[in-house]
Design a protein around this nucleic acid. Structure first.
Lengths: 110, 110
DNA sequence: CAGTATCCTGTAGGATACTG
DNA sequence: CAGTATCCTACAGGATACTG
């Protein structure tokens, strides 16, 4: 494996780690992406997957994820409403990060 | 590759992603770990590596990283003082996460 | 050099109630 | 069902000055 250090010279605003963290660093962001994973989930299902999140935070995160092209949203013009969320191509690329986070937690944290 | 989904049933407090995020989710945490990497760095060197961080945040993060056994600290009884930081075994295990973050940023973010 | 000590602020995040 | 709309607050994070 190549030395990570070679990737980056200075931790300025252009640092890829900081840019990724700016996009993904929220308390819930990676967890939501990880929960959606390769599935297509309705709002309510997602909420049930992450019981501790407030409605406000969930919808707020989803909106910004959609805005940032990590998640795509499909609303059906039905009553009662149905809205489905899934990861975009870009969103799928974040899964390896969440996976590393998960395996780190599993292996090292009680 | 195995389905990530199998790892976890629910996103409760025991969710490994959330536990990892609780430990590593700060604005600077993973960046500091990534900067130290496999090196042994003095406080001042580290500060120069991450120019934007405030002294308070840097020392605060370092202290909590030491407390959480991710970083080890060696202070030499000299004048002027010399203090060296490097990653512990556990800290080294977080590098793959930072690496994924870095490569995601490099490949996908402008 | 490697930190402390203060003071300050924005905003991430939450609780609750309401709606098309 | 899938959201809005309000109101609220703790604390992450920062600026600045000082010290052993």
């Amino acid at each position: 494996m190549e030395k990570s250090q070679k990737i980056i010279k200075q931790s300025d605003e252009n640092c890829p780690v900081r840019k990724s963290l700016a996009l993904l660093g929220g308390k819930w962001t990676l967890l939501i992406l990880f929960q959606i994973n390769d599935r297509v989930l309705r709002y309510g299902e997602l909420k049930r997957c992450i019981p501790d999140i407030s409605e406000k935070m969930l919808i707020q995160e989803l909106n910004s994820l959609v805005e940032n092209k990590l998640v795509s949203k499909k609303a059906y013009p039905e009553i009662p409403p149905r809205v489905e969320y899934c990861l975009t191509e870009l969103g799928l690329k974040t899964l390896p990060i969440a996976d590393k986070l998960a395996s780190f937690g599993l292996q090292n944290l009680k």
